[in-house]
Design a protein around this nucleic acid. Structure first.
Lengths: 228, 228
DNA sequence: TTTCATTATATGGTATGCCAGAAACCACCG
DNA sequence: CGGTGGTTTCTGGCATACCATATAATGAAA
């Protein structure tokens, strides 16, 4: 049915080539298996400018932003390289994640509505029962969504922003993670406990559970992920 | 005495105009009272390029980085504006700070040496006794150094990096903070407690004290800082 | 005098060309 | 055959010119 009134939609804000190039580059880097042995980490400005169909100027501005964000390193007169994070750096990222998400959980107990918290159940129940093994691939995504949901519940945009930035880096090593099947199951138990703490508005407990849960991940990565 | 062998020293790594412009711009913005009423928030590319004596290209790359960092906003065809953070955003930054520094304190109890922790005393004892009122200006700096020291003790570079970035924004409102004289005194008490928790390797307590201390600051800013 | 359309101008966006440094290549010499 | 010095080439750094759009200025019509 066509509405009687004008369909006003935000004018197609044609973004600048710089920002579009930025997005495209970021996506391309994200989709790349940069930790594989033979991975080509060097970026060629002129080649990229041809591939994207833009001149080097907006491309370079996009690269400058990616450099600021830590995704690439620009070596003057040497080349532009995709940055491989060291294992130590990944561990630090997870540590920061633990700090931020646990704070988010605490905030959530103060500001989130009962309905919002209840909605978390939908993000864990999906993987109840024994179907876990078959959905291991999906588990990781669902896992991420659960944690993102808690952060959203805190209402703190900055925490969401920072953790999202961290995720960009961390997910690149996801494929190098050896998921023992038991981890997913234990994880779900943790998640349910976290939800319960949120529901009972127990800020201290929610914070602690989230922190410990994420620090478990850190330890797991430290033990089982091969890097460097 | 002149040594018999050549004095090799790292060659003066002349930074690119882009990065030098970035530093200069960041410093200039930092030194500016951007929250004053009549503050000129608009930046003129061509004027800046003349003032810095560089062309617009490296200047724009520096601006792109500052935009990524959230210090300026580039409105296509409209202008480049220094970003004023809203009070809500400042509060979020302090919240993140609390989360990260409290995690840093926890880490410090695990990895810092006794000597390193002992050195913290030097950062609070300075303002012992009643000399506080006269040094109110310096207090703020010393305060910052104390917190930075704890973060350094954690050994987590990423926490240091992120909080440093936050500080860039937060210090801009420092001059708008009404410091009741009592706050500094209570602050010192808090600091001493924190040191004690670190010395006794009480991670839980150190984390809690730091969090509560910083959240006090948040509440103080919420109550007494005028913005927007 | 006010308003609206037109024009001018200012400002950021993009493309391009040249420059300098670094690396690769090569020829010459030991 | 290996190493050294010179030359070429490749790549990023920078400057500049031009373009597109937003805004200001201007003037004509109501």
């Amino acid at each position: 049915m066509v509405k009687a009134q004008l369909e006003i939609q935000p004018i197609e804000e044609v973004q600048s080539l710089k920002s579009r190039t930025y997005d495209a580059l970021k996506a391309a880097i994200g989709a790349m298996k940069i930790y594989d042995a033979g991975a080509e980490l060097r970026l060629d400005e002129r080649a990229l400018s041809l591939q994207f169909g833009v001149s080097r100027t907006p491309l370079r501005e996009a690269l400058a932003q990616l450099e600021q964000e830590g995704l690439v390193r620009i070596a003057p007169r040497r080349g532009i390289f995709i940055v491989r994070k060291t294992k130590a750096e990944i561990l630090e990222m997870i540590t920061v994640w633990a700090a931020l998400e646990s704070m988010a959980a605490r905030l959530a107990t103060e500001v989130a509505s009962d309905e919002e918290i209840a909605r978390l159940h939908g993000l864990v129940d999906t993987f109840d029962s024994d179907a876990i093994e078959e959905h291991m691939g999906e588990y990781s995504d669902a896992n991420i969504r659960f944690h993102a949901a808690i952060i959203a519940l805190s209402g703190c945009k900055l925490i969401a922003e920072i953790t999202h930035g961290l995720f960009t880096h961390v997910r690149a090593i996801r494929e190098r993670t050896i998921f023992e099947r038991d981890r997913a199951r234990r994880s779900i138990v943790d998640h349910k406990e976290i939800i319960e703490a949120l529901e009972t508005r127990n800020g201290e407990r929610a914070e602690r559970l989230v922190r410990e849960h994420t620090l478990k991940l850190r330890q797991h990565v430290e033990q089982f992920v091969l890097l460097d």
